[in-house]
Simulated assay, not measured.
Amino acid sequence: MSAEDVLRRLKREGHKLTAGRKAIIEMFVRNPDERFSAKDVYDGMVAEHPHMSLDTVYRTLSLLEEHQVIEETQPSEGVAKYQLACVQSHHHHLICIACGKVSVLQSCPLSSCEMDLGGFLPVRHRFDVYGYCPACASV
């Protein structure tokens, strides 16, 4: 996914294409495996965009998450982190709480659960497993 693809999609959906939004999108596209907090994004933007507020960053992150451009993960320290959405098929994540490494879990735990949802029709879901990667677990 390129920054231009994302910007075209947002424009088609009626959203403004501000310089700040473009810069935030480019930050995620340039660093597809990195996870950023809202403060990380703000700190990365303030030098080039000194008038950008933290509120603007939060609104942009919300918009990008709503359009499935980025995904949120909640590390153990309670601070939401965002990364470029995976474009792979349906999958979930294993997240190391020590080093932050994110691995893909291809099987879906929901599909293997024998549960009665009482007529509830799931549209989407998330399943992240937090723990220690092999390198951090052996320390």
Rank of each mutant, 00 (worst) to 15 (best):
R8G: 07
R8E: 14
R9F: 08
R9P: 00
K11T: 08
R12A: 14
L17C: 10
L17Q: 12
L17G: 14
A19F: 01
A19G: 15
A23P: 05
I25C: 10
V29D: 13
P32F: 03
R35L: 03
F36E: 10
S37Q: 03
V41I: 12
M45H: 02
A47N: 08
E48L: 06
H49L: 14
H49Q: 07
M52F: 06
M52K: 04
V57N: 12
V57A: 07
Y58C: 04
R59I: 06
L61W: 00
L61M: 04
L64R: 08
L64M: 15
L64G: 12
L64S: 12
L64P: 15
H67Q: 06
V69L: 10
V69C: 11
I70T: 09
E71A: 07
Q74H: 14
Q74P: 01
P75T: 03
S76Q: 06
S76N: 13
E77I: 04
K81M: 15
K81H: 15
Y82V: 04
Y82W: 14
H92Q: 06
H92M: 06
H93G: 11
L94Q: 05
I95S: 11
A98T: 04
A98G: 04
C99N: 07
G100L: 11
K101D: 12
C108S: 09
P109S: 11
S112P: 00
M115Y: 03
D116P: 02
D116V: 00
P122F: 08
V123D: 11
V123S: 11
H125F: 14
R126A: 14
V129T: 11
Y130S: 02
G131Q: 08
A135P: 00
